[in-house]
């Protein structure tokens, strides 16, 4: 069991897909202006990430090497369709705001990257936990950014008024510039951290 926990933990912090590998940024910037969007995005992400990891892992012995990428894409596309249908059915209001980015999960580099780098060469159970870890890793960064942006930009968290009414929200935080800003600072911090770690070695 410890091994599986390790896989999850590894994806949450030490090799976090968003922070360390810096991929899948489009959706992170786009939907991080509200916590609700971020949560729905994470949910939809998990609906694609985990099953496609499981399927690819279980079929890894029968997928031919040369055709693997198109097959990965097909699998991911199928699950994306499912995720879209579910999101649309149960979370219509939020879905309408961010549907483009949910559709685009199909080209999310994290998912296809894990299919190639992990699921295709690991057993099903490990791939499942990798999927869970990746979802958590993606989700917490996205949600954290969303909390900051929504709090400063609207004074609310997930729609609930948190800050006193006298607070004048900085609208810029929920507009595009702040998305770039937050990611810029985050990447700066991460790269700085990695550089220092490298330096110590």
């Amino acid at each position: 069991m410890k091994r599986y926990l390790n896989i999850v933990w590894d994806a949450i912090v030490p090799s976090n897909p968003v922070l360390i590998i810096a991929i899948g940024l489009c959706s992170v910037i786009a939907v991080s202006n509200s916590v609700q969007s971020a949560l729905l995005m994470t949910f939809a992400f998990s609906l694609v990430m985990i099953p496609s990891n499981i399927i690819i892992s279980s079929m890894r012995r029968i997928i031919p090497e040369e055709l693997r990428v198109p097959i990965f894409v097909m699998v991911i596309a199928a699950f994306t369709t499912i995720a879209v249908l579910i999101s649309r059915a149960y979370f219509t209001a939020i879905y309408d705001l961010i549907k483009l980015y949910i559709l685009l999960i199909v080209v999310n580099c994290i998912i296809i990257g894990r299919a190639e780098a992990f699921a295709y060469s690991h057993p099903v159970l490990e791939s499942f936990f990798d999927g869970v870890g990746m979802t958590l890793g993606y989700g917490w960064v996205l949600t954290a950014i969303a909390v900051v942006r929504e709090l400063l930009g609207k004074g609310t968290i997930a729609g609930f008024q948190v800050l006193p009414a006298t607070f004048q929200p900085a609208i810029i935080m929920i507009l595009p510039p702040a998305g770039f800003l937050m990611i810029g600072i985050l990447i700066g911090a991460v790269e700085n951290y990695l550089r220092k770690k490298e330096g110590k070695k």
Partner: peptide, 10 residues
């Protein structure tokens, strides 16, 4: 510009 898009009223 930051102020303008943030606190348009002010």
């Amino acid at each position: 510009a930051v102020l303008m898009v943030s606190w348009t009223t002010f």
